[in-house]
Computed example of a mutant assay.
Amino acid sequence: MVLISCVTFLSFLQLSVSNQLIVEMPPTDTIEDESYVCRSIPFENIEKGYLESIQIDVDRSRVHHVATSVCEMPISKEIWECKETQGSNCVGSSAGFGGWDRYTNDKGVFEFPDDLSLELGSQTSMKYLVFQVHFSGKQINQTKPAATLTLNISDKPRKYNFQGYLMGSRGFIPSNSPKGYYSNIACEWKLPGVKAFRYRMHTHHAGYHVEAFLVRNGTWTLLGSGSPQAKAKNWFEIPGGNVNIRRGDILAARCLYINKEKTPIYFGMGDDNEMCLFGIEIGFHDKDKQHFAQELLCETESPTFQFKNFPGLLDYF
């Protein structure tokens, strides 16, 4: 159990006339070398606004990464240790966005594309900001905030509302796979049409390539690909520009691993586990918001699931 001691707990929340919201993680002491600390803040002074960008400034000597999200109700209305609740810090509507870690190349600036924004505020379903700070070492006698977030919020909506679509694997990577093993993921899109703007990808040490496709009427359109070994955590533009996703399309992704060990590598949150993640930044129309209250997840079991077992993909892999 991590003991969290907030040296000071001032109100760091303010909304200026320029629609800028500034929040900080107060100086925080911990008793573990690897700690995850979360804070939730209500949008008390914003009834309805539209997030366009965020600037995340951190003390790089103390912080490994910062994750940002908005939600209807956080699991705690204060500061709490959240290593065990990663991905489950909200109840009801939620959307994860932005973030920072030491591998990003954008200097802590996250900007939505021109046609995309995130609705938030006390009169919306996204009533709280929740952010998580992963400390890379034990924090003792801290006197300065570890992270400062500056949100730029407009009073005018853009054409599309933001939500995330995440493709991931569960299960394991087989042992003795020195020539490579693909973990496959695929789901049919059964919701109203959306626009895909950008993508990002993630694996751990054994992952060497990630790629994803939109499949429609037998035609495979590349959504993105790259080497996670490059450690770049940015959002990347989809090759050829934004893509429309329609009801009945298939979204397919796969990650290439090399496992030379005599034991399997299991997917999970631990440092010794692996991940196969391909995230898509999607935009939906306001009239369809009831379908996109939470981040969408497409998850399949490895090694059981293979493209050849999925209707519509049989003839291609």
Results as ranks from 00 to 15, higher is better:
262 K>W: 15
106 D>E: 07
231 K>P: 04
271 D>A: 14
162 F>Y: 15
306 Q>D: 07
80 W>I: 02
145 P>G: 06
53 S>G: 05
59 D>P: 06
168 G>Y: 13
292 F>A: 00
55 Q>S: 14
263 T>W: 15
136 S>M: 12
240 G>F: 14
22 I>Q: 10
81 E>K: 06
53 S>F: 09
161 N>V: 03
227 S>C: 10
174 P>Q: 09
165 Y>T: 00
24 E>N: 08
42 P>T: 02
20 Q>I: 10
176 N>H: 12
59 D>H: 11
60 R>F: 15
245 I>L: 09
133 V>C: 06
2 V>D: 10
149 L>A: 03
245 I>Y: 14
272 D>G: 10
182 Y>M: 02
275 M>D: 07
159 K>T: 12
23 V>P: 11
113 P>W: 13
259 N>S: 05
230 A>K: 14
149 L>R: 06
49 G>A: 04
19 N>T: 04
189 W>M: 01
33 D>I: 09
169 S>A: 11
24 E>L: 03
40 S>C: 06
110 F>V: 00
165 Y>I: 00
221 T>A: 02
52 E>L: 07
140 I>V: 15
57 D>M: 12
253 A>G: 08
289 K>Y: 13
192 P>H: 11
284 F>A: 00
271 D>R: 15
128 Y>T: 02
7 V>E: 14
273 N>Y: 15
9 F>T: 06
90 C>Q: 03
279 G>W: 13
295 E>N: 15
238 I>S: 02
165 Y>K: 01
30 T>L: 03
204 H>Q: 04
304 T>P: 05
118 L>C: 03
32 E>N: 14
112 F>R: 01
309 N>W: 13
17 V>Q: 15
246 R>W: 13
229 Q>A: 08
128 Y>C: 02
49 G>C: 04
218 G>T: 07
211 E>S: 03
166 L>C: 08
305 F>V: 00
10 L>K: 15
145 P>N: 09
64 H>G: 05
317 F>A: 06
308 K>V: 14
183 S>Y: 14
291 H>C: 09
314 L>G: 08
119 E>V: 00
283 G>H: 07
99 G>H: 07
199 Y>C: 00
50 Y>Q: 00
182 Y>S: 03
315 D>F: 11
220 W>R: 04
114 D>M: 08
99 G>T: 01
163 Q>G: 06
86 Q>F: 13
57 D>C: 10
252 A>D: 03
33 D>V: 09
203 T>P: 08
72 E>A: 00
92 G>C: 05
166 L>G: 04
92 G>T: 05
52 E>G: 05
204 H>K: 03
83 K>Q: 12
263 T>I: 11
69 S>H: 10
143 T>P: 06
133 V>R: 02
42 P>Q: 02
290 Q>F: 13
183 S>A: 15
220 W>K: 05
87 G>H: 07
312 G>A: 03
246 R>T: 13
66 V>Q: 02
289 K>H: 14
45 N>E: 12
252 A>K: 02
22 I>K: 11
73 M>D: 10
136 S>G: 13
138 K>G: 08
108 G>H: 07
263 T>E: 15
221 T>F: 10
16 S>P: 09
83 K>I: 02
138 K>F: 10
126 M>N: 04
102 R>K: 10
102 R>Q: 08
313 L>H: 10
211 E>G: 01
145 P>W: 14
122 S>W: 08
18 S>N: 14
31 I>F: 09
189 W>F: 12
131 F>V: 01
298 C>G: 08
178 P>K: 05
58 V>G: 01
55 Q>D: 15
178 P>E: 04
